[in-house]
Design a protein around this nucleic acid. Structure first.
Lengths: 222, 222
DNA sequence: TGTACATCAGTGAACGCGCGTTCACTGATGTAC
DNA sequence: TGTACATCAGTGAACGCGCGTTCACTGATGTAC
């Protein structure tokens, strides 16, 4: 019966945009509540604290993402009937799951900037929260990647996955600035779909790169 | 004759560490001046404002870096006598220049975290400052990369360079956290040298990846 | 050599401001008997 | 059907606090004549 979203939703909608634009410390509750046309005390009433509001903003993306990603992996595993799943399909499935959730809300950019901020927050109560709440689906994913790339040493796979995480988060979280430059210099407007298309061969090639030459003067004792 | 570094140096030394640990907004001048054992008003006396202090912290890394990088590129160009320089050598030279400056001060981690923060700061007065002050050396570098990879369309090269920038900054700026995980899970202690060794084949493979398939239903009018 | 003045690094205390949070309160709705 | 009470969303004003910055000042050193 509400003509406009309720207070909780208005706070979350406004907060995620402001957080993504300027960061967490630089966004005050007064910024959020005045833009959301909501009483200042409403944030503490509904969420308890600014910290909890930040986590709630993340949960609204990550909860549906983990559900979808688990479902997509279930389907992928069923389709391959216990065989190893090719790396390309795993990456494709992950990309699709990441894109689906914010696509519903026209806010992929916000989602990615939030992820970028979460990782660049130094002391990282946020990174810890994300790790605790959503770590299991990533553990499942990396295990499937392990089976898809048996030739890679575990440590090497770990580092390469994080290299690629860096590529994706850095690029998509700074997308607006990069897009402006690219558009000015090369006259091409870059959509997210286009960027994913460009990322695909790069990520695959990076994961399949030859192993690094071993460190020189490093020998086992004995 | 000074038994300890002067006030300006003590402020800069302390500020860069605290900024790297917790970010700019989360570090107050009181944090910095009390840890540096310096009067609170000294920051504004010597630097004018907190914003200028932040820029001074960056300048202390970026000024020597640009000097060294230009010199290294001079030498590389002289050695190749006008011929195109192979991509591997260009990347190697860049890596060496980045590593040399903070190596003198045992602070590569700080340097990288600062770069990561600069890029994740949303409104980016900092990114603008860095672009204005130090953009020319990167323009020179990308021009050399262009000659080394003539088969890549300009836009594709632009995006791949930024993909790799993301990999490097994300990895090195979050190095401590990643290193802890890697050490716990794989029992390997990872040095920066080791990480650069692992990055090399990945970056080269990424830059040399096959071109993406063209976007489907995208056709010129007429 | 002596005096007057200028310069400069540094200081201690205060300024006003915006911050996250709290608190007593209102008014609407639901529930018990 | 009526009354008493509980619950809950929301409010307006204030709280104390830490922030970046400013200001009048000190004391040491350098410079001019």
């Amino acid at each position: 019966m509400a003509q406009q979203p309720d207070t909780v939703t208005r706070i979350l909608d406004t907060a995620e945009v402001l957080f993504a634009e300027r960061g967490f410390a630089e966004t005050s509750l007064r910024n959020i509540t005045s833009k959301a046309r909501v009483n200042l005390a409403a944030v503490n009433y509904h969420f308890g604290s600014k910290k909890s509001l930040i986590q709630a903003v993340f949960a609204r993306y990550l909860d549906p993402f983990t559900v979808r990603f688990h479902a997509a992996l279930d389907e992928l595993e069923a389709r391959h009937e216990g065989d190893d799943i090719p790396l390309e399909e795993l990456l494709e499935t992950m990309a699709r799951s990441v894109l689906e959730v914010p696509a519903e809300r026209h806010s992929l950019k916000v989602f990615m900037r939030l992820l970028g901020l979460a990782y660049s927050q130094a002391q990282g109560h946020l990174r810890r929260y994300i790790q605790e709440e959503y770590g299991s689906v990533f553990t499942r994913f990396t295990e499937l990647v392990r089976r898809a790339t048996p030739e890679l040493p575990d440590a090497e796979r770990f580092w390469r996955l994080h290299f690629m995480l860096g590529t994706v988060i850095f690029t998509l979280s700074g997308l607006d600035a990069l897009r402006d430059i690219a558009e000015k210099d090369y006259g091409e407007h870059v959509s997210v779909r286009d960027l994913v298309r460009r990322l695909r061969p790069v990520v695959v090639a990076a994961m399949n790169a030859p192993l690094p030459e071993p460190l020189p003067a490093q020998r086992e004792a004995g």
